[in-house]
Design a protein around this nucleic acid. Structure first.
Lengths: 112, 112
DNA sequence: ATTTTATGTTACTAATTGGTAAAGTAACCA
DNA sequence: TGGTTACTTTACCAATTAGTAACATAAAAT
């Protein structure tokens, strides 16, 4: 597995349960059991998903008595957003124009 | 593994080699060997990465004699972009304001 | 002190990933 | 027909991931 932050964040998001967990955190801190509740998933499974998210820097955890609340950290998402930026024009243009754009680019830097 | 398009696209991007391949395709069609050249990687390894990208809908392949040129397909990237949108305000705001935002949200929907 | 609640750890399994070497296919070239 | 180029397929391997059941810990409530 690739251990750079960007790869970690992307592969953390590549699971519906983890995306659902993140989206729950948009509205604020949540405990592990609050996050686990809507999923038909055992405790250890949730714990592992949270570890993946934590390792990717997408959540932070604190302590509140026996609870371990999770909160969102959006920085890695910003990196993904930046990764996508060079491609954005490909979906902002109509699909017919894509070929034209590619051909145009080829004239400039296609020969090495 | 999750087989929905979004998960496939995200996990396809979660490898530096595949991101590098995609970024090469921004400037137009490339053959397999053109894509393989900068990596210290065997043919079969590249073929596998291309299959992952193809399965995720991020590239299309055609035929030109014995060559199998690849071209970019950006739609799945648009889906990722849309996935990120709800989080965007978290990095557009200063980090001090994040807590305030979260607390504000909690007042509205934190009690169930 | 004991129980309950909340969460984590360990040990195990099955499936997937990322890589290799070696053989196979497909199109062009002489 | 035979050789070369371009790429794929077929085993095979080691490492990782996603899940489970069972057990462990930590704080609060009784």
């Amino acid at each position: 597995m690739s251990t750079d932050q960007l790869s970690l964040a992307l592969s953390a998001l590549a699971h519906p349960a983890r995306r659902a967990i993140l989206s729950k955190l948009v509205s604020g801190e949540r405990t592990v059991s609050e996050l686990a509740e809507p999923f038909d998933m055992t405790g250890p499974a949730i714990t592992k998903h949270l570890k993946v998210l934590e390792r990717a820097g997408l959540i932070e955890r604190s302590r509140d008595a026996q609870r371990r609340p999770c909160r969102l950290r959006a920085e890695p998402l910003k990196d993904i957003h930046n990764l996508l930026r060079p491609y954005q024009r490909f979906w902002d243009e109509s699909f017919e124009r894509l070929d034209a754009l590619l051909d145009e680019e080829n004239k400039h830097c296609g020969e090495e």
